[in-house]
Design a protein around this nucleic acid. Structure first.
Lengths: 300, 300
DNA sequence: GCTCCATGATACCTCCAGGGTATGGCTCGG
DNA sequence: CCGAGCCATACCCTGGAGGTATCATGGAGC
């Protein structure tokens, strides 16, 4: 498959007429017809329903059209941004993050950095393990995760420890209490993220295990939203970092835990032994303020 | 430019060595070299710095690499999803929305619909005007906006009226009050979205004008986040729909207005005279519950 | 029910561009 | 100073993208 196919497909999907589409593309109708067929056979799905009176998009074709537009759009903006960067000596700054830190201060850091007009920000959702690799390859310059990983080329800084909270379905017996882990262990658990491991899920399991508590895992989920959905549906309870409580969802209540020291750290990773670039220095300065605010409780 | 270029570029950017990259791509080195040069000349930017000892990514190249990965990834997932749809007779349901409704119940609707396994959801941020066009072309099936637009093929339903609030910088004289529009008119205004018009900005201006109040527009912004940033920086104040107060930002306070009837509607658009598909029926049912919840105040 | 026309599909040809081979030129390490 | 690696250039070859001519089909109009 080539971009040609996508470009042709978009025009045909708009015109729903091969002859007209071909004219618009400044080419003859037969080769266009062939390219479309080729696209369909490569994808392995019918995108159009043919009739003697023109074409109609199948549901798959409709879907493909929508996303093809987005893809072509993204290519255009990417090329344009790369050109800008080459001309203006702007520089890229890549940030990797695990989803669970994106409910806290990270958006503030991103927002601040975006304001700088000499930096092109790139965000990538990556697991902590992937972050290490991405740091080394230069794909990102800073990573935010929740796990410590030993690597000689990467240094990790513990920004702060965030309390864990329990997410319970509304009306749960423990909903208005400050339960202990032991109390929570009585109820089935929704574990997340189940994929890819190791992850916060293992930290959660470790907390129970270290206290000699046996838990029953009712359900696994890959995304926070799914996990919360399962909790709201009363399939189980789960533990989440405090920042997640910003995600208000009908049918969910968050409660603090009685056990002291039940925390999940937020860890910033950088390449070791590298002189900080100007942008890195700016990022560090912003980060310092955010962490300070957080410690002094200015952000809930 | 063709996908081939992007695929090659990605491998080269990872290997940083044309010979090895060529081997990985099962091709000879010279044609690869040529394709990369061709890509660079088409983009009009150097992506690599050549040396006798291999290649290095320029900042633009780094940026391009990151986004190229995303593009290729998106193409893969799009193709896979289209295949799934063709096999399983899933159906597409497209939703268009203006940014300001995305802070309210819309995410709940999206979340519910995503759970259905016979529907492939497509979201598109579109202005109300674009939504009408997208509805007609079948790109989306339902649109959420804040403006009434007369079109014979589209029917609009007023879901509810949402109070407007003022967003003020922290410490503003009116911060702890319930001000009137007349009081607010004394201060410079941050207008948004400035592009594309017509938009909420015109509704805001209309509210002042209809009361015979003259406002000074200190600054225009295109995005909510920018607007709030400007407000936080004390460049002016602005009006926002109530749902926006979910966006907590340091340095911003939201206050209700004293004037009654200062509201911004949330309007749902659909194609007129079309028998609702099963998915549309499900969406309508969910919507009804959400609107009911909203009216009875169960969602803040 | 027949014809006509619009539209997509098929057959076959042409030619350009993508890929191959051979080789040159540069830089760094020993 | 020489050899090893690496990328660039020159030149050739072939597959496939695009063109032309034509066929097949089914709905509109009489």
């Amino acid at each position: 498959m080539e971009l040609r196919h996508l470009r042709y497909f978009c025009v045909v999907a708009e015109e729903l007429n091969l002859t007209r589409a071909a004219a618009k593309l400044h080419m003859a109708q037969p080769p266009l017809s062939r390219q479309i067929k080729q696209l369909e056979s490569e994808i392995g799905a019918e995108l159009f329903e043919r009739s003697a009176r023109g074409l109609r998009l199948t549901p798959a074709g409709q879907f493909f059209h929508e996303h093809t537009l987005q893809i072509l759009e993204k290519i255009d903006t990417t090329v344009a941004a790369a050109q800008r960067m080459a001309r203006s000596k702007r520089v890229m700054f890549g940030i990797g993050f695990v989803p669970s830190v994106f409910y806290g201060q990270l958006p503030l850091l991103v927002r601040e950095l975006r304001q700088k007009d000499n930096v092109e920000l790139v965000l990538a959702e990556l697991t902590t393990v992937q972050q290490v690799k991405a740091l080394k390859s230069g794909r990102i310059d800073m990573g935010f995760g929740r796990m410590r990983i030993d690597d000689p080329d990467v240094e990790q800084e513990n920004l702060f420890d965030e309390p864990l909270m329990a997410a319970l379905p509304e009306g749960h017996p423990l909903a208005d209490t400050t339960p202990t882990l032991a109390q929570l262990a009585e109820y089935p658990l929704v574990l997340f993220p189940a994929q890819p491991r190791p992850s916060l899920a293992d930290i959660m399991l470790g907390l129970f295990r270290r206290r000699g508590l046996k838990v029953t895992v009712a359900q696994e989920a890959n995304e926070l939203q799914t996990a919360l959905g399962l909790v709201a549906s009363d399939l189980g309870i789960t533990l989440v970092p405090e920042q997640v409580k910003r995600v208000r969802r009908d049918g969910i209540v968050y409660v603090y835990l009685a056990d002291p020291g039940l925390t999940s750290p937020v860890i910033c990773s950088r390449r070791k032994g590298e002189a900080p670039s100007p942008i890195m220095q700016e990022a560090n300065a912003i980060l310092e303020v955010l962490v300070e605010n957080r410690r002094s409780g200015r952000y809930p």
